[in-house]
Nucleic acid binder design. Structure first.
Length: 883
RNA sequence: GCGGGGUUAGCUCAGUGGUAGAGCGUCUGCUUUACACGCAGAGGGUCGGGGGUUCGAGCCCCUCACCCCGCACCA
């Protein structure tokens, strides 16, 4: 035995950065471009915002990808994980505008060119932050291929797609009702609008009829829009009002008179007063009603959220919510505010800044999406693309089948500028060229559309634009379509669906065959993390505190397909696991020379039962980990390796191997063999663990003197049938249960750790008797016995039990039972009797015998036998004096 | 209104027809020479309520209750 060259505790800070630097400099993250024969495995990263910071959601999605990527790479695939970042139009522009505001600057004053220069500078300053944080996590992305959505190559792909879709009339420009964010000063698409229930007020306003002397009452939650009303509608069949159709009402505060119209689509006579005010310029339904009825549109709210001149002198320039108050005051004064009621409604908010959306008519670019959606629905239906968890497929279909055209123009400066050019002659030129000339009048004095594209437009091309498309590159040939996409369910519509549509349209294939949607990271009580709740866990703080491996392992073991309740205590628990791995390796190194790594293969015929057992168990864990990872069951995979390593390898195998390793039992040949098996089990364990805990496994592997230069390119264990050993599992399990029984009774009898007893095993079957004889030392050591007697005679007062069908007796120095043990035995007996009643009821049921599978019936019969034998034995224990 | 998910041990969650599980927490011992970030042992659940199918239901079907998440509507 020797002192290992290893600290007593797991100290991740001492090696994590070192190994990452080695992996990267050795080029292990970069696939071999010449290996066209090897099957490829590729993943593209969901690109984080270029100026963002890593949060727990990123930590999760990237840990999961890295587990898959490392697993596949070790399993022999030519593996590419494509990294990169997203320019994130609105988000980045907002951040930089905020920074400028601190200097008292605004982008408007600064101008487009200068502003963009500042954003690029900001991007350059921050672009490495996300990468550095991902590196701390240990992700094995191929950084030599790092991409950015505004790179020249990706921008070319964007222009090519835009122009192609425009030529096919799948992109068009139109005046339409759009969601306008007065704060971001841009239109946004429908899915960027969030709805939130809010309690507010609804107002009943009186609109006097111009001639009839009566009046109509309309209800509204947005009184300021009345300034832009151009009609009042009733249901054409409504007997209360239909005679008023064609008449006029005087629109209060404006002096305008507007018509009363009949519209069966807009008006539900059952709802409210049955009269609806129509503001075509500021409400989606009203807009459509306006188009149907040829009404004019009066824009009373401007792009900045302030009232326009058209709202009238007394309101112009007011913020829309100030205007609301003023309108109400004036109506009140005029006696036309008839009623104010509490009202709950869902307000539309900008998904980026929470500002209330103002519906506004504007000229925007749209993708005609239905023709693209059809094939994208098909590939999920026919299984060419699978979504896990599968329940998301219905959500996908539901959305795709009711999809609306996608507004892709944004009134921002940061992003891909729309490749449309306007000529003074009125011609619109859509071109991939930077400065096309007008095909109609020949002029070269065209002005480019000032707007940029929705960030998600470029994101939707990510799986192939990052690989050099539209050129036919080697990357595309080798790695496209990619294999798996891992991302959060929150961007299923924003990103996943659109990638599938664009991928099919432009490459003829869906961009990936499997989608794994991970849940939302929540706090330990299932609450959303938020700064205001103060329950946010910063993944980098956690990495600093505990190491990257425990953080990764925690995220993996919590990923079952639902939301992830992340708790500090969980991470601490898996930091303890890392320490366990560390110390088990440390123990092993006390017995293993590194040259054993090159030792000859294990001769299975020489193995002792416990050695056969541990190899069978490591094989079972190997099988389970591979199976679980294939099904994206990260929790099951992590659990399998955790349970195996801690509770089987450490708690049982190492303890069972100690007598031989320490030279207390067996020959020198036994000791050599035990070392070899210990190494084998540890080696396989570390490789199994590597995708989950890359750093600690590398550190330990290197200390063990691995054959390959790095564990990350060593082969991943695969299960081998030859290692499965049911006999060893059966016998060693019985030994374990015997040990537990002795320990248990020892405590209940009030004996201590150092008291030693004699154990008698009635092993009648000759083959098993030899096993117990040969392994008696295990029981002596682990159950702390004085001696084990096979088929001997126990004293009449010994504690008796039956373990795995084998009767045992523990000879205690006193025959006194404690109250506690008496109670325990009685409880055991009661439990067994209850179970017996159940089994007997089943066995006496003819239907059960007839219909249940034979294996189940046999199982019940042998269980009955076991219970009877155990009951008989346990009852003997009660026939003694009590204390 | 449409769709999806959930309700299992104190907490957070696994468990898709055959004798109820994990982590953390709790209780009791233990400085056993890899590890007290440890070892050993224990306690703790009529699997949301009701009904049905089945020889057998936490698991399948129906129904009720409550919770969560999308989408749509909201004058």
């Amino acid at each position: 035995m020797k002192e290992p060259d290893l600290p007593k505790r797991y100290e991740p800070a001492s090696f994590e950065r070192r190994w990452y630097a080695m992996w990267e400099s050795e080029g292990y993250f970069t696939p071999d471009p010449d290996q066209t024969e090897t099957p490829a495995f590729s993943i593209v990263i969901p690109p984080p915002n270029v100026t963002g910071r890593l949060h727990t959601g990123h930590a999760l999605v990237n840990t999961l990808q890295d587990i898959l990527v490392r697993w596949k790479r070790m399993s022999g695939f030519n593996t590419l994980w494509m990294p990169g970042t997203d320019h994130a139009g609105i988000a980045t522009q907002m951040v930089v505008e905020r920074e400028l505001a601190k200097e008292g600057l605004s982008r408007i004053e600064m101008g487009r060119e200068e502003f963009l220069r500042r954003v690029w500078a900001w991007k350059e300053d921050h672009k490495d932050q996300i990468k550095e944080q991902l590196v701390r996590l240990g992700v094995s992305c191929d950084w030599t291929r790092e991409r950015f959505t505004l790179d020249e190559g990706l921008s070319r792909a964007v222009r090519h797609v835009f122009v192609t879709l425009f030529k096919e009339d799948l992109i068009y420009r139109a005046l339409a009702m759009t969601n306008w964010c007065p704060r971001c000063r841009t239109a946004i698409s429908d899915i960027e609008v969030e709805h939130r229930e809010q309690s507010g007020k609804i107002y009943m306003l009186e609109y006097p009829m111009a001639v009839e002397g009566t009046s109509l009452i309309v209800a509204t939650t947005r009184p300021e829009t009345m300034l832009g009303d151009t009609a009042v509608a009733v249901h054409p069949e409504d007997p209360r009002y239909r005679h008023l159709i064609g008449g006029m009402v005087t629109l209060p505060l404006t002096g305008r008179t507007i018509p009363v119209i009949g519209d069966a689509i807009l008006v539900d006579p059952e709802f409210g007063t049955g009269v609806v005010k129509i503001t075509p310029a500021h409400d989606r339904n009203d807009y459509e009603a306006g188009v149907r009825n040829g009404l004019s549109q009066i824009q009373v709210i401007g792009e900045d959220g302030r009232m326009t001149a058209a709202a009238g002198d007394q309101f112009a320039g007011l913020d829309r919510f100030e205007a609301r108050e003023r309108v109400l005051e004036e109506l009140e004064a005029a006696g036309l505010l008839r009623e104010t009621k509490e009202h709950v409604n869902a307000v539309a908010l900008c998904g980026k800044c929470d500002t209330i959306i103002e519906p506004m008519i504007s000229r925007q670019w749209f993708v005609r999406i239905a023709p693209l959606a059809g094939p994208a629905i098909e590939v999920v239906r026919d299984g060419r693309v699978t979504i896990t968890p599968q329940s998301w497929e219905s959500t996908y279909f539901n959305w795709m089948e009711n999809i609306h055209d996608w507004c892709i123009s944004r009134q921002l400066w940061w992003g891909h500028r729309i490749p449309a050019f306007y000529c003074n002659c009125g011609e619109v030129v859509v071109s991939e060229e930077d400065s096309p000339s007008c095909p109609k009048c020949g002029s070269s004095d065209l002005s480019q559309d000032p707007d940029v594209l929705d960030t998600w437009f470029s994101s939707s091309l990510w799986p192939f634009s990052t690989m050099g498309w539209p050129d036919e590159t080697r990357d595309l040939k080798l790695f496209y379509p990619t294999d798996t996409l891992v991302t959060g369910f929150d961007i299923l519509f924003f990103w996943v669906a659109r990638m599938i549509m664009m991928g099919i349209r432009f490459t003829g294939q869906p961009p990936f065959s499997k989608v794994f949607l991970n849940g939302l990271v929540r706090d330990e009580f299932g609450q959303k993390m938020s700064k205001s709740k103060g329950n946010v866990i910063d993944p980098m703080d956690a990495v600093d505190e505990m190491g990257a491996d425990p953080v990764r392992f925690t995220l993996a073991i919590l990923t079952s397909g639902r939301d992830i309740p992340l708790a500090k205590s969980r991470m601490q628990g898996y930091a303890a696991f890392a320490n366990k791995i560390w110390n088990a390796s440390r123990f092993s190194m006390m017995h293993i020379d590194t040259e054993l790594r090159s030792a000859k293969p294990i001769n299975r015929d020489e193995l002792r039962m416990v050695e056969r057992w541990i190899l069978s168990r490591v094989n079972a864990a190997t099988h389970e980990v591979n199976r679980a990872l294939s099904n994206f069951r990260f929790d099951e995979a992590a659990n399998a390796v955790y349970k195996f390593f801690w509770h089987e390898f450490c708690d049982l195998y190492i303890e069972m191997a100690k007598p031989v390793l320490l030279g207390k039992h067996g020959t020198q040949a036994d000791q050599r063999r035990a070392r070899r098996v210990l190494l084998e089990a540890l080696d396989r364990s570390l490789r199994l663990l590597h995708p989950f805990m890359p750093f600690i496994t590398e550190e330990l592997w290197q200390k063990l003197g691995g054959v390959e230069p790095s564990i990350m390119i060593a082969p991943y264990p695969i299960s081998e049938d030859v290692l499965d050993d049911p006999e060893a599992e059966r016998l060693v399990t019985i030994v374990q249960e015997m040990i537990t029984t002795v320990r248990n009774v020892r405590v209940e009898r009030g004996f201590t750790h150092s008291d030693r007893f004699r154990l008698v095993i009635q092993a009648d079957r000759t083959r098993d008797a030899a096993f117990y004889e040969a392994n008696a030392y295990l029981l002596v050591e682990l159950a702390r016995l004085s001696e084990v007697v096979i088929n001997g005679k126990a004293s009449g007062d010994a504690h008796r039990d039956v373990v795995g069908g084998v009767p045992i007796a523990i000879d205690f120095p006193e025959k006194v039972l404690t109250e506690e043990q008496l109670a325990r035995i009685s409880r055991d007996i009661e439990g067994l009797e209850k179970e017996l009643t159940g089994i007997e009821a089943r066995l006496s049921n003819e239907q059960f015998i007839e219909r249940a599978p034979a294996a189940v019936v046999d199982g019940a019969r042998s269980r009955k036998k076991e219970i009877l034998s155990r009951l008989k034995t346990l009852r003997q224990n009660l026939v003694v004096r009590t204390a």
